[in-house]
Design a protein around this nucleic acid. Structure first.
Lengths: 143, 143
DNA sequence: TGAATAGAAGATAAAAAAGTCCTGTAAGTT
DNA sequence: AACTTACAGGACTTTTTTATCTTCTATTCA
C-alpha cells in the first residue's frame, strides 16, 4: 500500500511527536532504535519532512527532531502525500491512462469508493492522537 | 496499490475473456495493442496465469490465450493474489512486523476495515461481468 | 575559541521491479 | 514432412526503490 519510505516516515513522526510531548528532542539513532528502521535511510526521509516543515530539527548536542508544542495536528495524510505523493488517491486502479468519469476503467467506481474511504481515514487520523495511544501502551511500533 | 504486472495482468485477462465470449482466441500482440501494455512483459505475466490455470493457451497458428466457455467466473481477487500475493490484505499498513490484534500498530483497526472492503470488492468483482461491460462500451481499457 | 555532537547533503551501492531478447517447442497448414 | 505461427522459458538489461557511506555545517558546552 505505502512505500517503505512512507512506512518508516510515519513511524518516525509518531515517535518524534511522542517524545516531543515531554519537551524533549529525538535523535536519529534513538528514533531508529525505537521504530526498528534503517538509520541512514530514515535520516533521509526525515530530512525531507524537515525541509517541508512537517517536523523541525536542530543540530548539535541535545539536537534532534521534534514538533513544537501547540503546533497544529499533523495528519497521517500530510506525511503520506509528502513522501508518496497523491497517486494513491488520484491514479487509476488498473493504470489506464485515460480513466475518468466519462471514460471509466472497468473498476473505476468500485475503486473510487475504497480510495475515498482511505483518503478520509488518512485525513481524520492525527499523529498527536496516535502518539498519546503509544504513550498509554495501547499501540506499538515494534516488538 | 497494485504492481504494474498486476495492472497489465488484470487488463489482459479482461480482454481475453471479452474475445473468448465470441469463441475466439487472443494473441499476445493483439492483447497488448488493445490494452496498451508492453508485449514481452505482458507475455511473461500471462505465462504465469496460464501455468496457474487462470487462463488457457495454445500454440501454433490461430493459437493464443482464451478462457473456456462455461468455465466458472474469474474473480478479480484470483488475478491479484496470483500476481501480487496477499500482502495487500494481510500485511501491516505501517510495516510493523509484530502487528496483530493483541499488539496492534497505531493504525491497525483503521486499516483493517479498508483492506477488508478492498478484499470484499475484489472477491465480488467478476471478470466475465466486466468483459460484458467492455463489450457494451460502458468501460474502457485504453484511449 | 575549540572540541564534541548531531543533522544536512551528495555520492554511491544493493535489491527489487519492470521490461527486453533470444532460443526452444508445440500446433496447425500445405 | 516441411513450414509457419505463436506461446514457453531462460538470460539479460534498465529503472526505481531501498539503503549506505562520507564529508560538511550548525550548535552546544567547557
Amino acid at each position: 500500500m505505502f512505500s517503505k519510505a512512507c512506512e518508516y516516515g510515519i513511524r518516525a513522526v509518531i515517535y518524534i511527536v511522542s517524545v516531543s510531548s515531554s519537551g524533549k528532542k529525538a535523535g536519529i539513532k534513538d528514533i531508529c532504535k525505537h521504530i526498528k528502521a534503517p538509520e541512514p535511510f530514515t535520516a533521509k526521509i526525515l530530512q525531507n519532512l524537515s525541509r517541508l516543515g512537517i517536523v523541525k530539527s536542530t543540530k548539535g548536542p541535545h539536537g534532534g527532531f521534534y514538533v513544537e508544542e501547540g503546533a497544529h495536528d499533523i495528519r497521517l495524510i500530510d506525511i503520506v502525500t509528502a513522501i508518496d505523493g497523491d497517486k494513491l488517491f488520484t491514479g487509476c486502479g488498473l493504470g489506464v491512462d485515460v480513466c475518468s468519469e466519462k471514460k471509466p476503467c472497468p473498476i473505476h467506481n468500485e475503486f473510487k469508493s475504497i480510495r475515498e474511504s482511505l483518503r478520509i481515514m488518512l485525513e481524520k487520523t492525527s499523529i498527536q492522537h496516535i502518539a498519546k495511544d503509544l504513550d498509554k501502551g495501547l499501540v506499538f511500533l515494534k516488538t
